[in-house]
């Protein structure tokens, strides 16, 4: 018997494997063409971003020298100390102004979210994001620089930047607070806490990391802004003299814009160095934010 079995095993054809039907040629070509073009689109965008990073960092490294950080701009040469200082003063000044008001607005629209005032603020915050930055700068010029007579100054520049970053801080604060579970609020209220205690002692600490990340992102936006500052902060080759009004101040993005169109190599070096510094900060902030939000997600 076993003998016959053996023979059977050797001679019989293996059971037929059902063949997966292939898609008709036309549909296969459609698919292949589709994946190829979408891949090309992604490659184009990635290449553009890498191209920008490559230009900024390769040329920027070549342009950075110790003198960039230690000397002020002289004509079309020298260093960028004045611009670095100015960018810090303007950006942090803007944050100091925008954080309290922006966070207050964010807290309000998160915690009292269904009232008409909250809805109005939320709507206008979204509209304010859409107002072109040059419009903010222009209004800053006409009101503060011209009408109030502050001239080009830190105050006018920082206030213009602050108006730009208000809606960012507002909406990130709102989003961060919305991540805090409602149970936490109910538990606190049940223990007899008042509204202010629930917000300041419970919700804000729980949302702190996300809010700080949002503020950091707003800072990166401020550092990269040019248009709102052109006619409010002006430009200066000298270090800031500490006056809030009546004295212009330099900043990095202005150096990029103005020095690249000068015909001198030394000016181009300044523009590349400034671009390097701005992009390095933007990149660091966004990497940090990505890491924070990744941890959140996991």
């Amino acid at each position: 018997m076993s003998h016959a079995n053996e023979a059977f095993r050797l001679t019989a054809a293996p059971p037929p494997v059902p063949r997966v039907p292939r898609f008709p040629l036309r549909r296969r070509i459609f698919s292949i063409a589709g994946w190829t073009t979408t891949a090309l689109a992604l490659i184009l965008l990635t290449a553009a971003m890498l191209g920008i990073l490559e230009m900024v960092f390769v040329r920027g490294i070549g342009a950075l020298v110790p003198a960039t950080f230690t000397t002020i701009t002289q004509g079309t040469g020298g260093g960028l100390l004045n611009a670095i200082e100015g960018t810090f003063v303007l950006s942090f000044g803007a944050l100091l102004l925008a954080v309290p008001f922006g966070m207050a607005a964010g807290i309000y629209i998160s915690e009292y979210r269904n009232g008409w005032w909250a809805k109005t603020i939320r709507l206008l915050a979204d509209v304010l994001v859409g107002v072109p930055s040059i419009v903010v700068g222009y209004v800053g010029y006409v009101t503060m620089v011209d009408w109030l007579g502050w001239n080009f100054s830190v105050a006018a520049g920082a206030i213009s930047l602050a108006v730009m970053s208000l809606p960012y801080i507002c909406r990130t604060t709102e989003m961060a607070l919305q991540q805090v579970p409602g149970d936490l609020r109910e538990a606190a209220f049940a223990l007899g806490a008042g509204e202010s205690q629930v917000i300041f002692r419970i919700c804000l600490p729980a949302a702190l990391r996300a809010i700080l990340t949002g503020i950091l992102l707003a800072l990166a936006v401020s550092v990269g802004e040019t248009a709102p500052l052109l006619y409010t902060a002006g430009w200066s080759n000298y270090l800031w003299d500490g006056k809030m009004t009546h004295s212009p101040v330099g900043y990095l993005t202005y150096a990029i814009w103005t020095f690249i169109s000068e015909p001198f190599a030394s000016a181009h070096q300044l523009a590349y160095a400034a671009a390097f510094l701005v992009m390095a900060l933007v990149l660091l902030v966004h990497l940090a934010a990505r890491l924070v939000f990744d941890r959140h997600r996991r």
């Binding site: 992604l42 965008l45 990635t46 553009a48 971003m49 890498l50 191209g51 920008i52 230009m55 900024v56 930055s133 990166a220 936006v221 550092v223 990269g224 802004e225 040019t226 248009a227 993005t253 990029i256 814009w257 690249i260 523009a271 671009a275 701005v278 992009m279 933007v282 990149l283 966004h286 990505r290």
Partner: peptide
């Protein structure tokens, strides 16, 4: 995604420079 979205973070003036 990070690289593509980084395009939104590049300051306008750096785009101009590029």
């Amino acid at each position: 995604s990070f690289l593509v979205e980084l395009l939104a973070a590049v300051p306008s003036v750096v785009f101009g420079l590029w």
